[in-house]
Lab assay of single mutants.
Amino acid sequence: KKSYVLIKVKNPKTKETHTIVVPEENLEEVLKALASQPNVKVVDIERFP
């Protein structure tokens, strides 16, 4: 059974918020990819039960 993680990201320029759902096993690479985006800020990470 896969567990999923909900990542909320915000664009500081446009103030838009997006929610991305990723499998927990991919969380680290997704966070690394997001960290390299200049106008993306991770605001929240939630685990799915």
Rank of each mutant, 00 (worst) to 15 (best):
K1R: 08
K1L: 13
K1T: 13
K2Q: 14
K2S: 12
K2R: 05
S3T: 14
S3K: 11
S3L: 12
S3E: 13
S3G: 14
Y4V: 03
Y4E: 03
Y4P: 02
L6Y: 10
L6I: 13
L6F: 07
I7M: 01
I7R: 00
K8S: 09
V9T: 08
V9S: 01
K10Q: 15
K10Y: 15
K10A: 12
K10L: 15
K10V: 15
N11I: 06
P12I: 15
P12A: 14
K13I: 15
K13P: 02
K13R: 10
K13Y: 14
T14V: 03
T14I: 02
K15I: 03
K15G: 13
E16C: 15
E16S: 03
E16G: 04
E16W: 05
T17R: 05
T17E: 09
H18N: 05
H18I: 13
T19N: 10
T19G: 06
T19Y: 10
T19S: 10
T19M: 06
I20A: 01
I20H: 03
V21N: 03
V21R: 06
V21W: 14
V22G: 01
V22F: 02
P23R: 09
P23Y: 14
E24K: 05
E24W: 11
E24T: 09
E24Q: 06
E25S: 08
E25D: 09
N26T: 08
L27H: 03
L27F: 05
E28T: 06
E28A: 12
E28P: 07
E29Q: 14
E29K: 11
V30E: 04
V30M: 12
V30R: 03
L31C: 03
L31K: 02
L31I: 04
K32M: 11
A33K: 11
A33F: 13
A33W: 12
A33T: 08
A35M: 12
A35Y: 14
S36F: 09
S36P: 02
S36G: 09
S36I: 07
Q37Y: 08
P38M: 06
N39C: 07
N39P: 02
V40Q: 07
V40R: 05
V40A: 08
V40W: 05
V42Q: 02
D44E: 13
I45R: 01
I45M: 06
I45N: 01
I45D: 01
I45E: 01
E46D: 08
E46K: 12
E46T: 14
E46F: 13
E46L: 13
R47V: 12
R47S: 08
F48W: 15
P49D: 13
P49C: 14
